[in-house]
Design a protein around this nucleic acid. Structure first.
Lengths: 201, 201, 201, 201
DNA sequence: TATGAATGAGATTTCATTCAT
DNA sequence: CATGAATGAAATCTCATTCAT
């Protein structure tokens, strides 16, 4: 945890704006410094390079997101033996937590998901997809008996991405958290229904 | 139909590679010219600017895509009065045509959908979404009675985007046309089922 | 006298527009060719280079202007022995002829006097000044007795330039020939009066 | 007052030479930097763009010129009620001040008046003309009675430009301040006489 | 006569980064 | 902790001109 230098904060604040507006590649460090009222030298005192500056904004929320997801999935696996319906409440809660975290750092995730081309986060979506994939494939294996083993891995990949895309779409098209939550719940319901319908006979 | 100058072709070929690899913004005209074995002046003889070069690659396939979509939707509206099931075959055929066109110009659409930031096509996805939206909202209105009027516009927007995202996902993650077709059909089926399940009761 | 090729004419016509609009330096041969509906090669068939193209537009009117001036000044010298007042009518006639020639080729002279920087005509004004100077100094010498020898050469230079500047000003600020003539006559009268007043005791 | 960085000074110095020699448009920033012994990046650290560099040379002398003119004209209006002859001394003083300022920054004004095409100063002469015009038209109105109201505005415009042209001519043709002053006084006298002669019956 | 293609050098500008102080 | 200066490479684009056909 770096010291809370005022300059550092100002730098991060204008960087956030610039990255959000122009995207990583087109963002200008010069402008960020100018807006923060400091010189480029100051920036390079606090951050190793452009990527590190981007990271200073995105790292924490992103890692927390990963943590939230992993935590949930571990619980999930524990719950796996219980009857399916019992986990529904948990799932809603999870979605709520997720959406809340995402909207708590709305700008950051918007940036991360749509403006990170060129930065170390340019493959963030794929990384998330991998995590989801791993989990879901795992779950599907274990739940195989439950659904009569009709589900193949490719379909799980698709599912993973549909869910992910739904979240990305949510962030890029709905600024209001309450509405976003409402919509994403509907979508998840939609997907669940489709899922169930697709595998039931 | 422009004359098939050899230099022009070489230019387009290296541009295609460079755009695909680096994305529109980061693609270097210098490198494109060097790879094609000509000077930058030559490039500017054939193309007005960077955007025009991008357009020379993308315009035709993109416009054809739009045409295919519009043609289909017009037919769709004509079919609207008939019982729903009757159009299923048409729909499959349409998806096949779509996928075929997309994979005939695989590189182009990959580029268009994920590497066009900064070019005149940076909002191509949104434009496609608008076309779909317009059509689906229209169709939903007319089909309202069929489904008991339970569907709202917001859901249609989500649906539109889910379908679009599914296609984008397809292109960015599956290089083989046959497999892509198989998957996307499953996804469409999935979505249809989810849709039906979501509005029935 | 070059052959009147249609292409040549078209080239000259669009060159005239481009030079007038942008000035010699900023004028683009490409644009001139495009506007004329021919290629650059064609231009270089008819004209050696940019300067020659400029010359093709300006040479004739310019040389005629020189001729008109020289002719007049020779007459003037012949008249020198006559009483001063006798030449007044001639002078008016000369100004009329001059203005008429200038406005017959309005665009050309406008171009020549204000847009020729970079071309072989960039010192045209100075050349005209030299011609005038030569003449006036000559005349002043011969008329020395007439005015009591009070006039020095430097003053003549200034006079020369004032007259020239007046004509340039006329062309750049008054598009209508009739009005221009009226004004320039007033100015010449003004200058004559000033002149007389300045040397009369 | 900007800090006197050595590099900045060197840059300005070679810029001055280059602009004066080639004119604004044809002046090469590359050459300016090379002559100053720095890279182009350095130039862009000190100046926003080519125009700003030009401005760094011309702004101060130009603004001072405007200030000198405006100050004088305000005094003039105050003097307007006094008999005409009383202001003659003032006028001479003003011309002296003007010429002195002009020759103190000889290169700058030479550049400004003849080499500024393409820069933000390309209409500087017109701006000066407007200022003069405004003043003289005003003065002429008020002095109408003095001269029997025989003077029209068009003549005033011509007069304005004759005076302006005289000054421009002075700068472009006479490098020595003393001689320049002597000549311009004579010209002003000349114009005054012509003026008086022209309006006195 | 004219085309169409191509050159090659040059233009201005922007950038992330470095470093002595 | 931060400045201010400077680098050097790269960016896109424009230009007058040439030349084989």
């Amino acid at each position: 945890m770096k010291a809370d230098s005022e300059t550092r904060e100002k730098l991060i604040e204008s960087a956030r704006k610039e990255f959000l507006e122009k995207g990583y590649n087109k963002a200008s460090l010069r402008k960020i410094c100018a807006d923060a009222g400091v010189t480029t030298g100051a920036l390079y005192f606090f951050f190793q390079d452009k990527d590190a500056l981007f990271g200073a904004i995105a790292d924490e929320p992103y890692n927390e997101l990963i943590a939230i997801m992993k935590e949930h999935f571990e619980e999930d696996e524990a719950l796996m033996e219980q009857p399916y319906e019992a986990s529904e409440g948990d799932h809603d809660e999870f979605v709520e937590e997720l959406v809340h975290h995402l909207y708590l750092h709305y700008d950051v995730f918007h940036m991360l998901l749509t403006k990170a081309q060129g930065s170390k986060y340019e493959n963030a979506v794929d990384e998330l997809a991998d995590i989801l994939d791993e989990t879901y494939v795992d779950m599907t294996d274990k739940m195989g008996s439950h659904f009569g083993g009709k589900v193949n891995k490719t379909m799980v990949h698709w599912l993973t991405h549909m869910i992910l895309d739904a979240f990305i779409h949510m962030i890029t098209h709905e600024k209001d958290e309450a509405k976003a939550l409402e919509h994403i719940k509907r979508v998840m319901n939609f997907i669940t229904k489709g899922w169930t319908a697709a595998i039931d006979k």
